[in-house]
Design a protein around this nucleic acid. Structure first.
Lengths: 182, 182, 182, 182
DNA sequence: CATGAATGAGGCTTCATTCAT
DNA sequence: TATGAATGAAGCCTCATTCAT
């Protein structure tokens, strides 16, 4: 009976982020979730009073935080915006290969929930955060405000589209090729 | 007792295409499907022996055929590749506004099915078809083979990414803006 | 694998009538019900689309039909209204002893359902039917219309009250004593 | 942060009496109870070591005390037994209209508990107390011991039956009419 | 004396599918 | 060819209770 490294709530969030990303919100049952998280049956509703939907929101937030860190790490050491964006594409391709990030974790988790308004608003909030994070780095690296906005949105669109095609092809090559479309 | 316009099988396919697109494969139950299609309870397995998964494949194919027609219509009267691609973006934006095409109908239908290999292979097949269709027009409009391939893939990626963002924002604006990213 | 005497639907209704009467609507789980009826797990919602509540309505109707037969049998051979009512009290006392009719089957089944309007309306309908049945016999046995109405209502009230006290005392004696209160 | 008028334990009892009366023992969850009583989550088992069943016993006792006071108040100023009993019927009808006393609070609370022996014994004890209270007044007002016993039992039966019919009809009229059945 | 986090059993319902006709 | 009755598994959620503090 060794104590697990993470508390139950965090294990639930990470299992949810993983499983929703792979199989979609409705494709994951609570039994799968609890088994994967090695969490006791009754604990889900203790930590997430509204159940599966609350957990999905938390999982999406957690996944988004990871994405924000990847963005920051990609641009932090970059000399130009193009350098940073290229690094980001490579990092995402690597993550795709390593962990089977089948697609955007936010889309699989939030775009099919029962409470579509709440879910979609949260998705919009997260996506806006990603774009804003890229935009900050774009401005720092010398782009005009208008250009920074345009380019950060373009990066977002390319990555989303790239994820979809990479998933269909089971290949990260397209993600690496995105750098030519910047 | 007027006879319905379409035979049962086609009504099932179109209902499935509509519902899967909106709520995802696992988000739609057979009861919803049969109600929406006004189909008798036992007829699904008559027309689709493997049940829901067969129906999903058929619905994705049907949706893809519609997309291929939109692509063809966009490029048929175009003088340059850019013109055709721009028209395509506008047409998709219009469809998004009209029918609430929440996202790529193929992705919602096929990327969460139970039999992931079969479903993903079909998705890849469909996506390759879209890219090939654009590529044909690109070649016809004077692009080199290599450039035609690159540009058609880029169009695909932008549209997929644009769909995702448009869905989150509940706005088709980004789809129209894609023309600046060509 | 001998075929059961009654079809599944009827077995469900009779089990429900028995269990609800004994333990109340919320005191009976579907697992208990299905076990008692030896019914397959999925059959409940086939026969009763709205589930437990539909079954409760059906069970109450079935129980009421039995009560109507007891009323008719009590008064059919009676020479006076008092004779019939007395026979009815004795018959109910006997049933109480034999089968543990803990209380009015309608009250336990319908007075706690989730859809209180529907349930209460059905209870009122059933109770009115009992009173009307007694009233018909009262009129036939010579009572004026006004007297028939008053007396049939009185019989109903006494029986209901008697059931409650008999249940608390675990004794049918009070039911037999009701004849002195007519 | 105003101090509540009643201590937690009393608030729990009164909430329980109210909710059990309305929805039955199994129809009320502890969450409802604690919310209604504005009681902290963990305090129930502090005041009632055996949990819900202890609380139900206490709530039934409290409700019974109220009934005993109503009986006493009805008979205290009466000149004859009939006067007292009539007043009692009117008082109960008024309470039914005012507070929606859907039925006998003892029956809803105790006749469906998990521990039927303990619950039924308590119900019998309470009912005997009501009958005894009426009997005392009957004796005081001049009835012979035997007659007092018979009449007090009759009053009990009529009230119980009247409550049931009043609940089904959502009308207190029958409760007022009980005076003609004395 | 009082609290609220944590839990496993059981709640009702919907699921996709099979089968007899 | 076409139907709808019938079914077992799994769905999400609420339950009354225990325990550490």
């Amino acid at each position: 009976m060794t104590k697990p490294a993470l508390p139950t709530k965090d294990r639930l969030i990470q299992s949810a982020a993983h499983l929703f990303r792979t199989r979609g919100y409705h494709g994951v049952g609570l039994a799968d979730l609890l088994t994967d998280a090695k969490a006791p049956k009754g604990s889900l509703y203790h930590h997430f009073p509204n159940g599966k939907s609350d957990l999905a929101i938390a999982a999406a937030t957690w996944a988004s935080d990871g994405m924000l860190r990847v963005i920051a790490a990609s641009f932090d050491g970059a000399d130009t915006f193009e350098d940073g964006a290229t690094t980001l594409c490579y990092k995402l391709a690597k993550l795709f290969d390593l962990s089977g990030w089948d697609t955007c974790p936010i889309a699989s988790t939030l775009f099919e929930g029962p409470d579509n308004t709440r879910f979609r608003d949260h998705a919009k909030h997260i996506y806006d955060g990603w774009i804003a994070e890229v935009q900050v780095h774009a401005a720092r690296l010398g782009l005009s405000e208008e250009e920074a906005q345009r380019k950060s949105e373009r990066v977002f669109v390319l990555i989303q589209g790239g994820w979809t095609l990479a998933r269909a092809r089971h290949s990260s090559e397209i993600l690496r090729d995105l750098r030519h479309m910047l």
